[in-house]
Amino acid sequence: MTTFKLIINGKTLKGEITIEAVDAAEKEKIFKQYANDNGIDGEWTYDDATKTFTVTE
């Protein structure tokens, strides 16, 4: 398992979430669903070196 981080830079929601997953593709799906469930629609980036997804509205 690898630890992945999501950084949220939303208009109404900001924060960080850290979760373990098998791979980045699995985690991306979970993070995007979390963002969608919380009304966050923005630009996504991924840094493989730090295993960090960022979504910015």
Rank of each mutant, 00 (worst) to 15 (best):
V22K: 10
N38K: 10
N9I: 15
Q33K: 13
D47I: 03
A25K: 07
K14V: 13
F4M: 03
K32T: 08
T45W: 06
D47M: 02
N9R: 11
D48F: 06
A49M: 08
G15T: 14
I30Q: 04
A24E: 11
E20S: 11
W44L: 03
F4Y: 13
V22H: 10
L13E: 07
I8Y: 09
F4G: 03
I7Q: 02
E43S: 08
T18Q: 08
N38E: 04
T54M: 07
V55K: 04
I17N: 00
I19R: 02
T56I: 09
F31N: 02
K14Y: 14
E26G: 12
W44V: 04
K11I: 14
I17C: 15
L13S: 06
I19F: 15
T3C: 15
K29E: 10
E57T: 13
D23L: 06
T50I: 04
E26I: 07
Y46H: 00
A35R: 05
T52M: 03
I19W: 14
V55E: 03
I17F: 13
D48R: 03
T56S: 08
T56K: 06
D47R: 01
I7S: 01
N9M: 11
K5S: 06
F4I: 11
E26Y: 09
D48N: 05
T2F: 15
T45G: 03
A21G: 15
Y46G: 00
I7A: 01
N36C: 14
D23V: 06
I17G: 02
T3I: 12
K29D: 08
F4H: 04
Q33H: 04
D41C: 14
K5G: 01
N38I: 13
G42L: 09
K14I: 14
K11A: 09
D23P: 07
I40Y: 06
A21D: 04
V22Y: 11
T18W: 14
G42M: 06
G15L: 15
F53E: 01
K27Y: 15
W44S: 00
A35E: 01
W44R: 00
F53K: 00
F4A: 02
T12D: 07
G10W: 13
E28A: 09
T56Q: 05
E57C: 15
I40A: 02
T50K: 03
G39T: 03
E16D: 04
A21C: 15
G39L: 07
E28H: 10
F31S: 01
I19G: 09
D37R: 08
V22N: 10
A24Q: 12
Y46N: 00
E28M: 15
A25V: 09
W44Q: 00
I30K: 05
E43G: 04
A25E: 09
G10F: 15
E16K: 07
T45D: 05
D41M: 12
T50P: 00
E16H: 07
G15Q: 14
L13H: 10
Y46E: 00
F31A: 08
F4C: 14
M1E: 04
F4R: 02
T50C: 07
M1I: 11
I8F: 13
T3V: 10
D37E: 11
W44F: 05
A24I: 13
T56R: 05
E28S: 06
T50L: 04
I7D: 00
D37V: 08
T50V: 02
T12Q: 07
N36F: 14
N36M: 14
W44P: 00
I40D: 02
M1T: 11
A25S: 10
A49G: 04
N38A: 10
K14S: 09
K27M: 15
T54Q: 03
E16S: 09
W44M: 03
T56Y: 10
E28N: 05
E20M: 13
T18V: 10
E28D: 08
K51H: 11
T54N: 05
A49D: 08
F53G: 00
T18M: 09
K27F: 15
T54R: 05
I40G: 01
E26T: 08
I7P: 00
G39D: 06
L13R: 04
I17R: 03
T56P: 02
E28L: 14
T50A: 03
